[in-house]
């Protein structure tokens, strides 16, 4: 997860070596690991929780957990799936807390977490409603569906990379994507009719 999520052998070895140094109490190694993965950690969390403030907190907490739990890291395993599981678990907890916050009428929606890449302002204006429906649709998707859509559509990861990250077979990535997209399209269609 440097600039792009990287699964090359050299990158994985470097991450593993850094975690082993953290395990030995080297804080500088944590700093290096943070520099390598901070933006991607934030973006992954952002895709799952849809809120910049929460995503920032989660990304920091995820690194703290790496620091505190480095002793439990299995050096034979790659770092990224382990790190991703930490982020995803923190996101699940944040979403559970958000449900409680919503019950207390605290505003947790952050429409600015997703931006339009379109350079054409007129085109962007026309598509505004579609994009609003997409945001709503993503928010209403179950966690597992939002996760797979986020990784493929917005992180632009290949099926092999997603499979390695989530620890699932490549065929499962394809079928999960199919059903997640069907759900998202159905929600967006429903919103269009409202």
């Amino acid at each position: 997860m440097t600039n792009e999520t990287s699964f090359t052998g050299m990158e994985m070895d470097m991450d593993r070596a850094l975690v082993m140094q953290i395990k030995a109490g080297n804080k500088k190694a944590l700093g290096q690991l943070v520099e390598r993965h901070k933006k991607q950690a934030f973006q992954i969390a952002l895709g799952l929780v849809g809120n910049k403030d929460d995503a920032y907190d989660i990304s920091q907490e995820a690194f703290l957990r790496v620091y505190r739990s480095a002793k439990t890291f299995d050096e034979k395993q790659p770092f990224l799936p382990w790190f991703y599981t930490i982020i995803a678990n923190l996101c699940r907890s944040a979403l559970r807390r958000r449900t409680t916050s919503k019950k207390r009428n605290v505003n947790v929606d952050d429409v600015s977490y997703m931006l339009v890449s379109d350079d054409d302002p007129e085109g962007a204006l026309i598509k505004r409603e579609t994009i609003a429906r997409l945001r709503q649709g993503l928010r209403e998707l179950p966690f597992a569906d939002r996760e797979i859509i986020s990784l493929q559509h917005f992180r632009e990861m290949s099926y092999d990379e997603i499979a390695a990250l989530l620890g699932i077979p490549r065929g499962t990535v394809m079928s999960r994507l199919y059903y997640a997209r069907k759900k998202l399209a159905a929600i967006m269609l429903e919103k269009e009719g409202q």
Partner: peptide, 9 residues
């Protein structure tokens, strides 16, 4: 539609 969007930084 998703291709037109990106996450904020």
């Amino acid at each position: 539609v998703t291709g037109m969007m990106h996450y904020a930084d």
